[in-house]
Design a protein around this nucleic acid. Sequence first.
DNA 1: GATAATAATTGCACCCAGTGTCAAAGTCGA
DNA 2: TCGACTTTGACACTGGGTGCAATTATTATC
Lengths: 190, 190
Amino acid sequence: MTSRSELERVALELFAERGFDATTVDAIADAAGISRRTFFRYYPSKNDVVWGDFEVQLDAMRAWLAAADDSRTVLAVLSDAVVRFNSLPPEAARAHRQRMSLILHVPALQAHSNLRYAAWRAVVAEYVARRTGAGPEDALPQLVGHVALGAAVASYERWLADESSDLSSLMASSFAELSAGFPTVNDPRQ
Amino acid sequence: MTSRSELERVALELFAERGFDATTVDAIADAAGISRRTFFRYYPSKNDVVWGDFEVQLDAMRAWLAAADDSRTVLAVLSDAVVRFNSLPPEAARAHRQRMSLILHVPALQAHSNLRYAAWRAVVAEYVARRTGAGPEDALPQLVGHVALGAAVASYERWLADESSDLSSLMASSFAELSAGFPTVNDPRQ
DNA sequence: GATAATAATTGCACCCAGTGTCAAAGTCGA
DNA sequence: TCGACTTTGACACTGGGTGCAATTATTATC
């Protein structure tokens, strides 16, 4: 009985072994012992395999934000949320590095990621909307969504570039820079 | 004699008429009176047609930033650059709206845009690196690149949502929000 | 346990984007 | 006019993704 997560495991193994582009859907299906057509019932595209249970994570973050302490700054809460939903047990770090390295470095996945990012931004925008009384499509929530995503992705790239770095710290410092208006680069006396 | 820009004109017309996905490369080639294979000599992909001379614009922005007045704040200069390279004569607005609407709303192009955005971010990062003495791949320049892109894209989305809005003003106010650390949403007393 | 309804799986025939190859036209300088 | 060089085009092929209909489990019901 092939499960969705089993299929993911097999696929990621092949990607690591011979690269994403060089791994055909046929090869994945073969390795998993299912037909090509069935593969596409589990995942709508080859790209989507890499994202695993992203939607579930996102739902969790949405719920966490909905119940977050309103006495703190919007950006502080967002920073915590991003840190929390990107902290992994040390033993999961290697796998997550591999996954994110694909997403951020393989052109086909870099492109596809934008579609997923939209859902992430929507969660942030929804929270900012709740806090400010605006609609989720209004200017400020959307702006914060885009900018927060930028900070998060930049942090991921730093993390991938340095084996010894800690993702949570990088996220936190990116958001700190953000809420302070980029003091190191925005000083009028400079 | 079919030129690159003539091909672009024909393609955008078809996209507007019957939609991006429903327009095959064969149809574009037919309409332009060239062969399918020749289309791919002018543009590496169907997606790329929509971006027109983006690289040229980007080169211009790079040059402008390289020669910018260093006595002003990094974010102020970036804001000006973004405003300047996104202000169009009123008669070009309709076409640009159409083009950007495709890029921001058609899934295939939303995805592809991420690849183009990388080049845009690199230009910003390069400038921040020059101003701060850091390398273009260092944390701060990269972070500012990502965040500035977020602000720019958010502004574009606002602009597309409102026929009567002015792109330059939207860009400027997004960057103002950014350099002030999002005062309307980042107030500890709120 | 046999059977009927339901769901999962698969094979097959497509469509379309993108690429490699090689031959045919066209261009241009000498 | 000849030959070198570039542009174009025809053709075949790869690979992702989809619609459809048949086939094979599953599961519920009697």
